[in-house]
Each structure stands twice: as structure tokens, then as C-alpha cells.
Design a protein around this nucleic acid. Structure first.
Length: 263
DNA sequence: TCGCTTGTTGATGG
DNA sequence: GCCATCAACAAGCG
């Protein structure tokens, strides 16, 4: 369930269970999930190391040890599982961290989009994550506006681009555009100052609410994302929602609240 | 069988 | 170089 709030929840989950604990062994049933090392190299690098408090940047989880780091990206179907909660291993558990005391933290990923990377130092970690923009939850107003001013094109595509802001995904961008009443195909260069600032404020508000209140993308309440799958009406105006494709992704919007820039 | 899916990357074309 | 589109990755569901 990987949007920024989901990965932040994974980060806390990882910290709660694995921080301060040492690695007894790393088991990788499917070698292809580790993208830049062999299972043997990953095991050798992490075995005997102790996990520290993990970091998150956008949708990336960076789990540092007192030596190298394990980087996890959750794709569309990634998850973390703790053995005390779920004792049996699952066929989609791709990386299994056996920790001191016998507990296991497992990286599960059905579709194998995303994966695991090994980084020996911060430079390698940055290289593995690619060119990411600032974390969407940490970015300052001034930098947001500065970066937005350098972009052209459809709002949906710009906001989804991890090089612009790291952490905004398909669901969250639909929510953000609906909250700010901006059509997904609206070109960002046509946004006025009020709209730009509303984008920043609303992005922060949604992220904080979803991180603090849900720890994930919400499924209930007066959110666009909570009603769209049920085919429900717009929570704001009561009109029917519309489904289009924008930036190559399924996109939900309210045609009344978010007028089409080019009817 | 086909279409669809909360993500990302690389090729292609304008 | 920037932007738009699409295929590919992979696996499950209806």
C-alpha cells in the first residue's frame, strides 16, 4: 500500500521491531528481488550488524545498520511482516531478516515492483534511489514554489514525478487535486499564486492527516479516495465523480469542482 | 481470456 | 532538454 503515509508507517514498524537488534541471517528466497547484490552478498553484508533507527525519503525506506544499509521500495504491493504477529512465512516473503532472539522481519512483495538494495555508504544509498526531489512531508514552502516554477505540463504528471516531490503517488495526487479544485490536466504553468500556495498547504495537510490519523491511505471518511471505489458522489458537492486517464494513470476527479481547462 | 491494479524506468516521438 | 505516451516489469483478481 505504498504512498508516503504507508511507508512512514513501515518505517515506524521497522524501528519498533528491528532497531537495536542484530541480524542473525538474511534469507532471500527469490534472488531477483535484490536489485544490486546477490543474496549471498546481502547476507554477508548484514549478518552480525545492528539496525539503527531507519530513515524514509519519499516512498523509500532506508534501514541503516552500524555498517551498510538495506533499502526497500514497496512498489504497489509491498509490505512488512513481523513474525510474532504472523508466525508462518508466506510465498511472497522476498527478504527475510532473521534477528537475534529468533524473530523475523519480512519484506513481502507480491508483484515484485520495487525491491531491495544494498548500500555500503550514504553515496551508494543516494545512487540507488535515483534522482529524487525533496521529501513531500519535509519540503519547505519556498523550495516547493521554486521547484514548481521550473516545471511545465499537466498537474497530475508533475505532482506524480518523484524528481519533483518524493512521496506523492496516484491516490494522494488525486486527493490533492480534488481538495484544491484543480483539474488533473491543468497545466501547472497556468496556476496563479493562490493556487500554488493552496497546493503546498493542502499537500502538507493531507500528508499530516494521513500519517497521524491513519498511518496509511484512508478508506473511510470524507476523502475522495474513500468514496471513489464505491462509485460514491463527490463528498463536497454531491455530484458524480469521473474517471479519466492522466499521465498514464487512472485518475478520479469531480467534474463540477475541478473544471476542465480545455473543454 | 481480457482488463485492471496504490510504482518506476526506458524507449520513442514531437 | 523537456514533455507526452506507452511498453515492460510481475502476479493476482473478477
Amino acid at each position: 500500500m505504498p504512498e508516503l503515509p504507508d511507508v512512514e508507517e513501515y518505517r515506524r514498524f521497522f524501528a519498533r521491531h528491528a532497531a537495536g537488534r542484530s541480524v542473525r541471517r538474511v534469507v532471500v528466497p527469490d534472488a531477483t528481488i535484490v536489485r544490486n547484490a546477490t543474496p549471498r552478498a546481502l547476507d554477508r553484508a548484514l549478518r552480525g550488524r545492528t539496525f539503527e533507527e531507519p530513515d524514509r525519503h519519499g516512498k523509500w525506506l532506508v534501514a541503516w545498520t552500524d555498517g551498510p544499509a538495506l533499502l526497500l521500495h514497496f512498489g504497489m504491493t509491498g509490505d512488512l511482516v513481523w513474525s510474532a504477529i504472523e508466525p508462518e512465512r508466506h510465498r511472497h516473503d522476498r527478504v527475510i531478516l532473521e534477528l537475534d532472539g529468533g524473530d523475523e522481519l519480512r519484506y513481502r512483495n507480491m508483484r515484485k515492483l520495487g525491491g531491495a538494495w544494498l548500500a555500503h555508504d550514504p553515496d551508494e544509498a543516494v545512487a540507488a534511489m535515483g534522482s529524487l526531489g525533496p521529501d513531500a512531508l519535509a519540503v519547505k514552502r519556498r523550495e516547493f514554489h521554486e521547484r514548481l516554477s521550473r516545471r511545465r505540463g499537466q498537474a497530475k504528471a508533475v505532482l506524480m514525478d518523484q524528481r519533483f516531490m518524493a512521496g506523492l503517488g496516484n491516490l494522494l495526487v488525486d486527493e490533492l487535486l480534488w481538495q484544491t479544485r484543480i483539474h488533473p490536466r491543468r497545466r501547472v504553468e497556468t496556476l496563479d499564486d493562490t493556487e500554488r500556495d493552496r497546493l503546498y498547504e493542502t499537500m502538507r495537510w493531507i500528508l499530516r492527516r494521513w500519517v497521524a490519523g491513519y498511518g496509511r491511505v484512508p478508506r473511510r471518511g470524507e476523502w475522495l479516495i474513500a468514496v471513489r471505489d464505491a462509485g460514491g458522489p463527490c463528498p463536497r458537492c454531491g455530484g458524480p465523480l469521473a474517471r479519466i486517464t492522466a499521465a498514464g494513470r487512472t485518475t478520479w476527479l469531480c467534474p463540477t469542482c475541478q473544471p476542465d481547462p480545455a473543454p
